[in-house]
């Protein structure tokens, strides 16, 4: 679904991503670990096509289309959705109105979606105006649910979120990726599951989100390179014990684990 080939990205004069190769298949959840400043957010921003991130080399294809230089809205319409870590406040724009716009032409029950993430009271409020950390995440999820992307880019779902919100957010992210899994007549849950189509690329520092997700693969981003592919829980355990120092050693051996 998403293919990244030898991607080099600069912010200003500084090269931040130095040759990224990554494939994420349909329905797959990929976890990105790594210390601050390693290039994780840069990768997400580049995938979304924001203006400060210049691709100097390499290629991004999504659903078979080369989107390396496509404008942001085209990527969104093709099915890439992003949850922002620090989204801007937009004064005078109601959250409910934005949610409706996220759905593009699709019919959408904004009230129902809002109720699922406990955002009913926020629909009439200006987008992100005075929202707490948890409220921002729920608002981002609400917009993504309306948008219905095929690939979700999620920058630190747990940042600034209290424990109570974490549970709701974790479960909602899972639903967004898996679809609603409920016993239905005429279709086993296994069949439903096999039809899930939403992929995820998720940045996490703490790994709290892993308690709620079935993450398939994970990798560490360090100094603009991807390394150490493993099962996400194993990476987390390793990092908790040894920090990212091991990645440095590993990278100096050519990135092979």
């Amino acid at each position: 679904m998403l293919h990244i080939d030898d991607l080099h990205v600069s912010i200003g004069d500084k090269e931040v991503l130095k040759g990224i190769n990554l494939k994420i298949e349909e329905g797959e959840t990929f976890i990105l670990f790594g210390p601050n400043g390693g290039g994780k957010t840069t990768l997400l921003m580049t995938l979304m096509g924001f203006s400060n991130y210049t691709v100097t080399k390499g290629r991004i294809t999504f659903r078979g289309q080369d989107i390396t230089h496509a404008p942001t809205y085209e990527r969104a319409r093709l099915g890439i959705g992003m949850s922002f870590q620090r989204p801007p406040t937009i004064h005078g724009l109601k959250t409910g109105h934005l949610v409706r716009m996220c759905a593009q032409e699709k019919p959408v029950d904004v009230e129902d979606l809002a109720a699922r993430v406990n955002m009913t009271d926020f629909l009439e409020r200006d987008v992100n105006a005075g929202f707490s950390g948890g409220e921002i995440k729920r608002s981002e999820l609400l917009q993504l649910m309306a948008q219905g992307p095929g690939l979700v880019l999620f920058d630190e779902p747990e940042s600034g979120v209290d424990l109570e919100n974490m549970k709701l957010i974790g479960k909602t992210v899972r639903k967004l990726l898996d679809g609603d899994l409920e016993p239905k007549p005429g279709q086993s849950m296994k069949e439903q599951k096999s039809r899930r189509r939403t992929a995820g690329l998720i940045i996490t520092h703490t790994g709290y989100i892993l308690e709620y997700l079935n993450a398939d693969r994970g990798q560490v981003m360090y100094g603009g390179h991807l390394c150490c592919e493993a099962r996400p829980r194993d990476i987390l355990e390793h990092v908790e014990q040894y920090g990212y120092q091991e990645c440095v050693r590993c990278l100096s051996n050519g990135g092979k684990h």
Partner: peptide
């Protein structure tokens, strides 16, 4: 702000 909305599918 413009890019935020473009990430939701609105053109410039």
């Amino acid at each position: 702000e413009i890019e935020y909305l473009m990430a939701r599918g609105l053109d410039e």
